[in-house]
Design a protein around this nucleic acid. Structure first.
Lengths: 118, 118
DNA sequence: TTACAAGTTAGAGTTCCCTCTAAGTCAATT
DNA sequence: AATTGACTTAGAGGGAACTCTAACTTGTAA
């Protein structure tokens, strides 16, 4: 799969995909005869996971850490699990915070609604 | 209330508080005889709301928009309510997304857990 | 009365995460 | 043979949100 199609599929610009490769988040992307990148299904899965981590607020540096452990292989399974569990804890806290913010926002909106009839 | 104490209370650095003033997010902060800022309870409430909006992912530019409407006065109640309702919708979607990400993360963690016994 | 802490300003610097530019290559079409 | 379009690279540029520096003032305490 070429750059353009892959970019559309994963929702990242070609610039961003090259950037992720530059910083080491993506490795060993296959090239075709003319030197163009050719993305595989494995690449799609991996980028999908990167996007998930990113969308939940994990900085690229931390994702990179995970990526490097993954690169090393089976010996790092425990460490990777720990990283994800830490992030899970963070995300759980984050969601709780967002929910409380949503409540506060709703009560502010209700204040506006009741103030309309003044 | 002076800079230092206020900074601690609202959880923003003195730098950030000055920066917010510079970009117009904070206005008419009282000054004492020696020209130092003196924050009021109203200021604390307003900064608290700014922080809430910021923590739920609203860009400063949008918060500034709300701030400017607020500055104008009662005539902008409807507009402000609309802004908040848009943000409420955004936040609701955001939380739903985060929850789905959390689920996916948990199933990934479970995969790690079951792979331990290989 | 000199030292120190806490403030002030304008403006420069930093971090994160892209995003774009310039110059070039390659394969397919006209 | 020339044009088109999608790619390639290294490295520059950009926006958001701070964060810090330098030079200065002011009030308190020793």
């Amino acid at each position: 799969m070429n750059m353009q199609a892959f970019s559309k599929q994963v929702g990242l610009s070609a610039y961003t995909l090259r950037y992720y490769e530059k910083i080491g988040l993506l490795k060993n992307i296959r090239r075709n005869a003319s030197g163009h990148r050719s993305y595989s299904n494995k690449d799609r899965e991996w980028v999908g996971f990167i996007v998930r981590l990113k969308e939940t607020g994990m900085p690229l540096e931390n994702i990179l850490q995970y990526a490097e452990l993954r690169e090393i292989g089976k010996g790092t399974l425990v460490e990777r699990q720990q990283l994800l569990e830490q992030h899970q804890a963070y995300l759980t806290r984050h969601i709780a915070l967002q929910l409380s913010h949503l409540e506060a926002l709703e009560s502010k909106i209700n204040w506006y609604k009741s103030n309309k009839m003044n």
